[in-house]
Simulated assay, not measured.
Amino acid sequence: MSILNPASWTGAADEYPYVLQAIPCGHPARVSADGVAKRDAAFVALLNAYRATGGLVRGNDLAHLMASRASGDPASLSRSMAAGEILCFDWNETFWIPAFQLDRESLGTGQATRLLLAELSGAFDGWAAAQWLVAANAWLGERTPLELLGTHLEAVLDAARADSFIARG
C-alpha cells in the first residue's frame, strides 16, 4: 500500500485532500515551444516510471502530510531537500518527490537513499538523478537502479559512483 493512499493515513487526513494527478492543471500545453513539450513528456515518463513504487508526491502535499502526523513541517522538509537527504526535482514550479524513498510511518528517508544521493551529488541534479534511477543501467545488467536498490545496494552505489565519475568528465 502506498503512503499516498489517503486510506492509509492517520491524523487529520480529512483536512488535506491529497490527490495526485497524472498531469497537474494550471498551464496550457504550448506545442510551439519544443523544449517545454519535451520537458512535459519527460515528466509524464517519470510519473509512469515511479507509479509502481508509490508514485511522485508534490513537496507541499508531503509537508502538509508530515505536519498532520507530527513528523515534520515545511521547514524540516526544506532542510532535508537542501541537504541532499531526499531526492526531489522541480517541474512546473513545483517540487516533486519520488515516494519510494519515504518510510510509510515516519515519512523520512532511509540510509540507502542518503548513501545513493551522496554518490550522485555534484554530478546529477534532482531531475537527472530521478531519471537515472528509472533508466536501464549497463553496470546493473540493464536493470534499473530503483529495481535493485532494496536488494543490491552495493551494486547500485557502484553504478552511481561510476556514472557520476563519467558525468563529471
Rank of each mutant, 00 (worst) to 15 (best):
G122F: 08
F43K: 09
D61A: 14
G26M: 03
A42D: 14
G126P: 09
I23F: 04
G72W: 06
A12W: 12
G122Q: 09
A130S: 15
G55N: 11
G55E: 11
S78H: 11
Y16M: 09
W91Q: 08
W9N: 06
T113Y: 01
S68P: 02
L133R: 10
S78V: 01
V36I: 10
A13N: 06
S106M: 01
E15T: 08
K38M: 09
W91T: 00
A112C: 00
G54C: 10
R58W: 03
S71A: 10
S78T: 15
L20G: 08
L77N: 06
A12P: 04
A130K: 05
G26D: 04
G26F: 01
F43L: 06
Q21A: 06
Y16C: 02
S32M: 07
E105A: 13
G35M: 01
D61C: 05
A67Y: 06
A128R: 14
E119N: 04
F43P: 05
T10Q: 13
M66E: 09
Q131C: 13
P24M: 00
T10L: 14
G11W: 10
F124W: 02
Q131M: 07
V57H: 02
W127D: 10
E15F: 11
Y16F: 12
W9D: 09
W91M: 00
G122T: 07
D73R: 03
S8Y: 10
A49H: 00
A123E: 05
G26E: 01
G110F: 06
D34L: 12
A22W: 12
R104I: 04
T113V: 09
A12F: 14
N48K: 12
S76E: 09
L115Q: 15
H64Y: 05
A33C: 07
I97H: 02
T10I: 12
P28F: 08
F100N: 01
S76M: 08
I86K: 13
F89A: 04
A70D: 13
S121Q: 14
V44C: 02
Q21C: 03
A99I: 04
S68V: 05
R104N: 14
S8T: 15
F89W: 07
R114D: 03
A37L: 15
V31N: 02
P28S: 13
G122P: 05
D103H: 14
L20V: 11
W132C: 04
Q111N: 11
G55M: 10
A45T: 10
N48H: 11
A12R: 14
P24F: 00
D34R: 13
G59F: 03
Q21Y: 08
G11V: 06
V134S: 06
W127G: 05
L77P: 06
G35N: 07
I23M: 12
V19D: 11
G55Y: 08
Q131E: 15
D40I: 05
S68E: 12
N92R: 15
Y18S: 08
P98Q: 08
